[in-house]
Amino acid sequence: MALLHRADLTPSKLELLTAWLPARAWYTGPAEPALAKVGAFRFDDPAGEVGVETILVRAGDGPVLQVPLTYRGAPLAGADRWLVGTTEHSVLGRRWVYDATSDPVYACALAHTILTGAAQAVEEFEVDGVRRPRRSDVQTTAAGSSLVAEVTGIVRVDDRDPAVIATDVLDLTVFRILEDDPDPAPAAPTLTATWEGIAAPRLLAYATVR
């Protein structure tokens, strides 16, 4: 369960991404993108310390881009090159925002979701002491697998499209650019998603157990 706060972010998530995206090697849009949010979904951090959110954005009439992010209350050691930026959260204070492909919490959550067929996090707001659910505008489906593997760390990250996160037990392939006519799903456990305006699920990621 992801407990969300009704809060202001300065700068906003889209403002952070507008400055960060053009410098990515896999980004092919305009140098000063006017980003629009397509949707988002979250995973749970079992420890409850790290926010794990995947945002789908579009620059103009370009393709939908998948941008997984993690939100931390302190810097992630050794991850300076993956820092998207910092933002001031009106409830939680300063948050360090990372490209989640470098974050072991994201890798663990993504692997668990794909292999077990788990659902995305249920999102709730607390209003006057009462928690109220919020329906996500992106719905994910994990195929599940008979394979069992528990990720404990990241070995390396290939920062391209698709990004490849090599962990201690498996490889996670994460698609950055979600084309209108995607390639067929691989013969591997997958994560797909649907959102308003698309006719068929899009492949977001898959896992290859070594």
Rank of each mutant, 00 (worst) to 15 (best):
Y27M: 14
T28A: 04
A31Q: 12
A31V: 09
E32W: 11
A34P: 13
A34C: 14
L35M: 06
K37L: 12
K37S: 11
G39I: 03
F41C: 07
F43I: 05
D44T: 13
P46N: 06
V50E: 00
V50T: 10
R58N: 08
A59L: 00
D61I: 04
G62W: 02
P63Q: 05
V67C: 10
P68G: 11
G73V: 07
A77C: 03
A77V: 04
G78K: 09
R81T: 13
W82C: 07
V84Q: 03
V84L: 12
T87F: 01
H89C: 01
S90V: 01
S90E: 03
V91W: 13
G93W: 03
R94S: 03
V97M: 07
Y98H: 09
A100L: 09
T101Q: 11
T101R: 11
A107K: 02
A107D: 06
C108R: 09
A109D: 11
L110R: 02
L110N: 01
H112R: 08
I114V: 03
L115S: 10
L115H: 10
G117V: 06
A118Y: 05
A119V: 15
A119H: 12
E123N: 15
E124I: 02
E124K: 07
F125S: 05
E126M: 10
V127Q: 13
V127P: 08
D128S: 05
G129A: 00
V130K: 09
R135C: 05
S136V: 07
S136P: 02
D137I: 01
D137F: 04
D137P: 05
V138L: 12
T141A: 15
A142C: 08
G144C: 14
S145Q: 11
A149G: 01
E150P: 11
I154Y: 02
I154L: 04
R160Y: 03
A163S: 15
V164P: 00
A166F: 09
D168A: 14
D171R: 14
D171L: 11
